[in-house]
Design a protein around this nucleic acid. Sequence first.
DNA 1: TCTGGGGTCCTAGGACCC
DNA 2: TCTGGGGTCCTAGGACCC
Length: 450
Amino acid sequence: MQGMRSEAGVLHLDLDAFFAAVEQRDKPSLRGKPVVVGGTGGRGVVSTASYEARAYGARSAMSTAEARRRCPPGTAFLGGRFAAYSVTSRVVMDLLRELSPLVEQVSVDEAYVDLAAGDHDLSTDGLTALARDLKERIHTATGGVRGSVGIGSSKTMAKIGSELDKPDGLLVVPAGSETDVLHPLPVRSLPGVGPATGDRLSAVGVRTVGDLHERSLTDLVALVGQAHGSGLFRLARALDDRPVVPDREAKSVSAERTYATDLTDLGRLQSEIRWLADRVVARLQKEGTAGRTVTLKFRRYDFTTLTRSQTLPQPVDDARTVSDVATRLLAGIDRTGGVRLLGVGVSGLATYVQGDLFAPDEAPVVLDTEDDDPETPEPQSRSWHPGQDVAHADMGAGWVWGSGLGRVTVRFEGPLTPPGPVRTYAVDDPALVPAEPPDWRGTEDQNSRS
DNA sequence: TCTGGGGTCCTAGGACCC
DNA sequence: TCTGGGGTCCTAGGACCC
């Protein structure tokens, strides 16, 4: 069983009521007053409540309507200015990078630092001084935002440390004292134990981490599953050797929207899907990435939520394809009663921008077609099936598929380019669409039927 | 005026391959 | 010959986090 470090070398920083703190910094009239940042519409929820607002019971993830009920007149309800939060976040993250090259940013307002990768005195006194100095520099550099710092022998201990002493906290958990800190805590304070797991554990009499420690691995796995069960078993013993990893690659990109009133009109749903696909694709292209799986998320009037996905033969990063696939997925869903939310996502991301991602012997097979210029390949539209919603065929040198909406999108892979974000041609010129019925053998529609 | 929007990881079943 | 695996990919849903 992998263990823990013998010294407290991991720091966790959590900025206090971050969005609200930035608002109070930028608007002095809001200082000392309850501030709630989040969705301000009828279906909005709270992102962040200032500590003044928390005193009235406002909380993250609460509906804004509920927060309005609880907070007194004069409370500021703000929609949020993400550009300002992002700039301030960067200032803080830069300060962390002065401590160590190993900084893992978890969100705009949270990060881990591997202090052992820097040159630091890891004694409790040394760490306390380091944290005090860091907090002061954050406050100065941001113009008033404060953060809570936890330091421990693992990510979990550091995070629990910052949690236990916020706001404006500083807690060093010395190596060796982990279980003393952990065992009295309610299981719900362990990261990864949410409402569902908390209820299951409570049902068998496990309320504190100490209770958890008394349970066998077998019992915990039977209770909450293999991965989660063994994770809890280890956490109860403060066993956590997850590394601090900077620059994690994104695995999916998505956009979703909740509508002020439920949607029923099919044309409207389709135009919303196009809008969402546009947003997703803009971000994919900005990142130079593309993905093979397109997912449609669908929430009904009654909050029941479902997803439908389709994996394509090649990664895609263009709006037409993403929205066509998502629109087609919509067709298989019962929409009666109205749609509260739609979402479009792309996963299975692969970055093809750099040429050296592939080791030579796993390089994609390049087809030996003669004359093709990879920069301006000719559309190789040889197959088309007007009645087909989405169909594709292996064309040897590329892929073709069309939508049954009266237009055909031809996508193919330049023969000399790696399988990547393949180019898309909207074929508006009927001359490009083969007049012949397709020669449609073999691989018809492998992935598009449910 | 119940329940946002962006993610990650895990599970489970079926298909398919070896 | 029969039966039984394992491994991977895909889909759908769920838990959790900020």
